[in-house]
Amino acid sequence: MNLFQKLKPGIPKKGLFYIATAVWGFVSFRILSIGFDDIFENTSFYWIFLLAGVLLSIPFFKFFFLRISNKHIRRILNAKSERPCLFSFFDIKGYGIMAFMIALGIIAQKIRIVPLLYIGTFYISLGLSLFFSALHFLISGIRYKHMSICR
């Protein structure tokens, strides 16, 4: 066993699902908080924008985040190592997309080309989609034994 293998922070595959749940859950909480603040501070008709965010989250999750989550779940299940690296709940492309989205969110908040009310509505839909993805990872972690037998 080489030095890299000895120093690698490896954990059981099932643990990767819970780490992904925690990361996606934390990010969804942060994005939802910003979205709620942007909506509540900029209109008294907040319920319309909250409802729009909730309704938009469903196709956003189904057509974007569910595919990404499923890709990561399959990759984790098919990993050769039984103790993959702690950070391998995402692949390199996933980390790149996450960095891009964070940068885009910071820029959108700073430049304010789009009114905060609409950014808040988008953040509600994005945050809920991420929350649904976190639940998807959590369920996959709970069902890991069954899923690993069926693969």
Rank of each mutant, 00 (worst) to 15 (best):
N2Q: 08
N2L: 09
F4P: 07
F4I: 15
P9T: 01
P9H: 04
P9R: 02
G10F: 05
K13N: 00
F17P: 01
Y18F: 07
T21L: 06
A22K: 04
A22C: 10
W24T: 06
W24C: 06
W24I: 02
F26L: 14
V27Y: 11
V27D: 08
S28D: 00
G35M: 11
F36V: 10
D37R: 15
D37T: 15
I39H: 09
F40Q: 06
E41F: 14
E41D: 15
N42W: 07
N42E: 08
T43M: 10
S44H: 13
F45V: 12
Y46L: 12
W47S: 14
L50S: 01
L50H: 02
G53V: 02
G53C: 08
V54Q: 01
L56T: 04
L56R: 04
F60T: 11
R67E: 14
I68P: 09
I68D: 13
S69A: 15
S69D: 14
N70G: 10
N70Q: 11
H72A: 15
I73Y: 00
R74K: 13
R74P: 02
I76R: 00
N78A: 12
K80S: 10
K80Y: 10
S81L: 10
P84G: 03
P84Y: 00
C85W: 03
L86P: 01
S88R: 11
F90P: 03
I92F: 14
K93H: 14
K93V: 15
Y95C: 08
A99H: 04
A99Y: 05
M101Y: 11
I102H: 06
A103G: 06
L104S: 14
L104I: 11
G105D: 09
G105W: 06
I107S: 11
A108C: 08
K110W: 13
K110I: 14
I111C: 07
I111H: 04
R112E: 15
L116Q: 13
I119L: 15
G120K: 05
G120C: 04
I124F: 00
S125I: 03
S125A: 12
L126P: 09
G127P: 06
G127L: 07
L128I: 09
S129H: 00
L130E: 08
F132C: 05
S133E: 03
S133H: 01
L135V: 08
H136V: 04
F137L: 04
L138W: 03
S140M: 02
I142F: 01
Y144M: 02
Y144K: 03
M147S: 07
M147N: 05
I149H: 11
I149L: 13
I149F: 14
C150V: 12
C150F: 11
C150E: 15
R151H: 09
